[in-house]
């Protein structure tokens, strides 16, 4: 499902990668950039946190002509008057203009690295409105955003997440080679898919997904059609009876039913049945009294 993130061809998709200080989601973001480039889509990056050379270091060299970096890293606030794009320019119209300046025939993808920077300098509501305008505007096919969840209040993270069509939360696993991605994807039909996947990214940005050792988290929730597994399939025994089997079963007498036959068999003293022979010894102390006298029999 991680690798399908990009293929969601619904226009106006918004994929949000949420990370914490323990594990950076930027490599996953790079992987998606690389995938988009390989499919021949123009990628526009609003780079606040990482300089251009660092971001495109591992990308596929053959497609770099499709990669457009809008530098908001060196001067995001206009202090040194060096950059063309500052955080104040974060609006749908301004971004649409930027994207269309270098418009190519192909669809374009917008990458925001990172939304944390934008949210820190703008009102959350305003940011959400601009993002929504961008999605509806049609100038970008898809938006990718990175959000550091541990830098914001929970409400802000929730607000931005509600806007996204796909949310991927990455967390590290102890051995550090792999990380867990919790993916929840909301389709236009209202269907919500949730999945957890182990993944690792190699140096040349190839993604390998491992199946999760514990399958308990692998739940697919579907509100409309609930596919239930039949518990009666694959049984090692037979639950149903044929007519012949049923007749045979009914013929069998149950062991504790007291039939006439059984009664007579019990009452008739059989030959060779056991008997107690007792000859009192001289030393025996025989009690004449009935020992069961006090019993109410």
């Amino acid at each position: 499902m991680l690798s399908e993130g990009l293929q969601a061809t619904e226009p106006g998709g918004f994929l949000l990668i949420r990370d914490t200080a323990c594990y950076s989601g930027r490599r996953l973001l790079k992987y998606y950039i690389n995938c988009a480039l390989k499919r021949g889509e123009a990628v526009h990056v609003l780079g606040f946190e990482v300089p251009e050379h660092e971001l495109c270091a591992e990308l596929d060299r053959n497609y770099l002509h499709l990669f457009h970096y809008h530098n908001a890293y060196t001067d995001p606030l206009g202090w040194t008057k060096q950059s063309s794009f500052t955080v104040k320019h974060f609006s749908a119209t301004e971004i649409t203009r930027l994207v269309q300046e270098t418009q190519q025939a192909t669809a374009s993808v917008l990458v925001i690295d990172s939304l944390s920077w934008v949210v820190r300098h703008h009102d959350t509501v305003a940011v959400c409105q601009e993002l929504q305008k961008l999605r509806k505007g049609g100038s970008v096919r898809m938006i990718f955003g990175l959000l550091h969840t541990d830098l914001h209040q929970q409400g802000i993270v929730g607000t931005v997440s509600h806007l996204a069509s796909t949310v991927i939360s990455v967390t590290p696993v102890n051995n550090a080679r792999y990380a867990v991605a919790k993916i929840s994807q909301r389709k236009k039909s209202g269907k919500v898919m949730q999945k957890e996947e182990f993944f690792s990214l190699t140096e040349d940005l190839t993604l390998s997904i491992e199946t999760k050792p514990n399958q308990s988290g692998n739940v697919e929730t579907d509100l409309h059609t609930k596919s239930e597994v039949d518990p009666m399939s694959n049984l090692t025994f037979n639950l149903r009876l044929s007519e012949v089997e049923r007749e045979a079963k009914e013929k069998v007498a149950l062991p504790f039913v007291f039939s006439e036959e059984k009664k007579s068999a019990l009452l008739r003293p059989g030959r060779g049945s056991g008997r107690i022979m007792y000859e009192p010894d001289a030393n025996d102390d025989i009690d004449e009294e009935d020992p069961d006298d006090d019993l109410d029999v």
């Binding site: 300089p51 890293y73 060196t74 001067d75 995001p76 202090w79 040194t80 820190r120 300098h121």
Partner: peptide, 18 residues
């Protein structure tokens, strides 16, 4: 905190990168 982070960002951009 925001102003401090802006400061460190600019320092990183200017000193580390440039």
């Amino acid at each position: 905190v925001r102003a401090v982070l802006d400061f460190t960002h600019y320092c990183q951009a200017a000193i580390c990168s440039r």
